[in-house]
Write a protein that binds this DNA or RNA. Structure first.
Length: 635
DNA sequence: TTAGGGTTAG
């Protein structure tokens, strides 16, 4: 055993003297003092000093301080697994505690498979395991989704009579629940000799992760006691299922139930706000965080920034971003993506430059955000050079998503041949997203023959997707082929594919008001329609004529005009004008893309009524002001 | 010792 190697990293002339370590002590008090130091230790520098002390004073032969040293140096907060491994490998016969510490360390690391290998060696050396071994080991299984290994460990648990240990059983339940074996988890849950709140929470998490939100709700309802984790697991389940209103509702119920939200619950609720575009609720949650002195950890910071960008308030997003102490790659990517969504391509690039100056390396998602930014802002040359730099400068291999962004960027800019060449050259088989981007480009730039061919391919790939039929019908209509257009729409109806109804939402005093085309369900429907008629009058005075284009194939012209007049977005704008004070920005969120007519109308309204109107459509933001839109009609 | 949170083109 080369002890010098172990203590060599400690350089007393270099390392700050953090600990005043005595060298002359009775063995007993030295053990006690060393253990107490290890307990309080919070950096690797301190750890190495204690290690040197253990070595120097002969405590190295005592298993107790060495065990603690291993436990601390494998800590997920400040530990160093490589260092711990060196120490561990030089211990001639490590005890169970030491093996457990190593297994725990690896289970929390990016190589959890080593935890399983260590367990194998532990069995080989006939080291007995204890109640702590299984939870650590199963944590590694859950990171690896290693179902086969989990089953083997399950057998060991039963064989070694740990089947009554609630920690081992809960860990087992958790792996089954989140590794696609929810039925096994449920069976295990039913047969558990005792259950606690962790068992229930794992079932909720498991059912939400496999998409069975109803079962998750059942468990949530039935559980005898709920804690903040139960509420959060259910909330995240709702968010994951796109049920963001339900998630926010639950967040309020949680507070009524007297459960104080922690950072995870706050992150989940902010994520729901981001999806809903519920800016005022998001702001309220932010204010709550400030008032209660909640420390903004790196994840919470990202979600908060993301919420502001997705709710249309880039300035507030930037303020939070600038104040955020530790800006990791997530935070930078979120802010760059924010600028991308808002069509502020040059700023996205500028912040990317700053990110590099801060020494943060971009990842694949950062590039998706950057390429989107270039695409939305029509920055073709910048986009091309970014795309090239991925491989040349950053050694990142573009994924099909990046090719999709490039096809979109080139196609939108009218460089269809270049887009086509890129598709032919790329190392992937084109998917629906690639064809979809090209089809859109064909439609915008009038390449209708190619558009029809792609449209047909898309329907073949995605026969249950209503958008595919609608786009092909639109291309036929643009070519004046009304009969074929009608045929495509009939095919869609015939196959039982229903059109996703357009829906616009506006959040007012914490309540989300939703509108769909021709909607009569809103309680103030009369008032809204009257307002719309007044708006229509003013629009006509401005010389506006409703578009009766290609979208409403099966209607007569007069009907088309009526239908397009009552698009959800127009109803939402009318509602906004009634319900908010002059000069207040109206914020609307659409589930589909803005249609051309609504875009024209919203521009005019922003001028006539002197109102800033912010519309988030399925892809990006439009900021309407003084008769113009921030997208520059490029979308 | 076991359970819950973050960025992605169309």
């Amino acid at each position: 055993m080369n002890l010098l190697t172990l203590s060599s990293p400690v350089n007393h002339s270099m390392a700050p003297v953090l600990l005043n370590l005595p060298s002359q002590l009775s063995l007993e008090s030295n053990v006690a003092q060393t253990l107490s130091l290890l307990e309080r230790c919070s950096t690797m520098v301190e750890m190495k000093q204690i290690h040197a002390h253990i070595y120097k004073t002969g405590l190295i032969v005592d298993p107790l301080p060495m065990s603690r040293l291993l436990a601390s140096s494998t800590s997920p907060d400040f530990g160093n697994l490589t260092y711990a491994r060196k120490v561990f490998d030089r211990i001639s016969r490590p005890n169970t505690f030491m093996w457990n510490a190593m297994i725990r360390g690896y289970s929390n690391s990016n190589e959890p498979e080593v935890a399983l290998l260590l367990y194998h060696q532990m069995l080989f050396h006939s080291v007995p395991h204890n109640a702590y071994t299984f939870p650590f080991l199963l944590k590694a299984c859950s990171s690896l989704s290693a179902l086969e290994e989990t089953k083997q460990i399950h057998a060991h648990i039963i064989k070694t009579s740990f089947g009554l240990d609630i920690y081992a059983m809960n860990s087992l339940l958790h792996v089954y629940a989140i590794s696609g074996s929810i039925k096994s988890a449920h069976l295990l849950f039913e047969r558990l000799p005792q259950r606690d709140i962790v068992s229930w929470n794992s079932m909720i998490d498991g059912y939400t992760k496999c998409g069975d939100i109803e079962m998750a709700c059942e468990f949530f309802k039935d559980m005898p006691v709920k804690n903040v984790i139960s509420w959060t697991a259910m909330m995240s389940g709702f968010v994951g299922a796109g049920l963001n209103k339900e998630a926010l509702n639950l967040f309020h119920q949680m507070q009524i139930a007297g459960v104080k939200p922690d950072n995870v619950a706050l992150a989940s609720s902010l994520s729901a706000c981001a999806h809903l575009g519920a800016l005022d609720q998001g702001r309220r949650i932010h204010a709550y965080m400030d008032k209660n002195g909640i420390e903004i950890d790196p994840i919470l910071g990202c979600v908060l920034i993301d919420m502001y960008t997705k709710c249309g308030d880039m300035e507030e997003a930037l303020e939070v971003f600038v104040k955020l102490e530790k800006k990791g790659i997530y935070a930078w990517t979120v802010i760059i993506n924010g600028f991308a969504m808002h069509g502020r391509g040059q700023e996205a690039i500028d912040w990317f430059v700053q990110m590099q100056q801060a020494g943060i390396k971009p990842n694949l998602i950062t590039f998706t955000a950057l390429l989107t930014a270039c695409s939305h802002a029509g920055l073709v040359d910048d986009g091309k050079s970014m795309f090239k730099s991925m491989t040349k400068v950053y050694t990142l291999s573009p994924t099909i998503e990046h090719y999709g962004c490039m096809v979109d960027l080139l196609g939108r800019a009218g460089l269809l041949m270049e887009a086509k060449e890129l598709i032919e050259k790329m190392p992937f088989k084109p998917n629906a997203a690639i064809w979809g981007a090209l089809l859109k480009a064909c439609w915008i730039h009038g390449h209708l023959e190619l558009g029809k061919r792609i449209g047909k391919i898309l329907i073949e790939i995605d026969p249950a997707h209503s958008g595919r039929y609608i786009h092909l019908a639109r291309v036929h209509a643009a070519a004046g082929e009304w009969e074929q257009a009608f045929e495509v729409r009939s095919q869609m109806k015939h196959r039982g594919v229903s059109k996703l109804p357009g829906c616009s939402a506006m959040s007012l005093n914490g309540i989300v008001h939703e509108f769909s085309a021709g909607d009569g369900s809103h309680p103030q429907v009369e008032e809204i329609y009257q307002m719309w008629n007044r708006i229509a009058e003013k629009l006509r005075e401005e010389g506006y004529k409703p578009a009766t284009g290609d979208l409403l194939l099966d209607l007569e012209d007069e009907e088309k005009e009526r239908a397009i007049q009552y698009h959800s977005e127009k109803l939402a704008v009318a509602f906004g004008l009634i319900k908010t004070k002059p000069e207040t920005t109206i914020r609307i969120f659409k589930n589909l893309r803005v249609c051309e007519d609504c875009h024209t109308v919203t521009k005019l309204i922003s001028k006539i009524y002197v109102r800033d109107i912010v519309v988030r459509d399925r892809i990006r933001f439009h900021h309407f002001k003084g008769g113009k839109c921030s997208c520059g009609d490029y979308w």
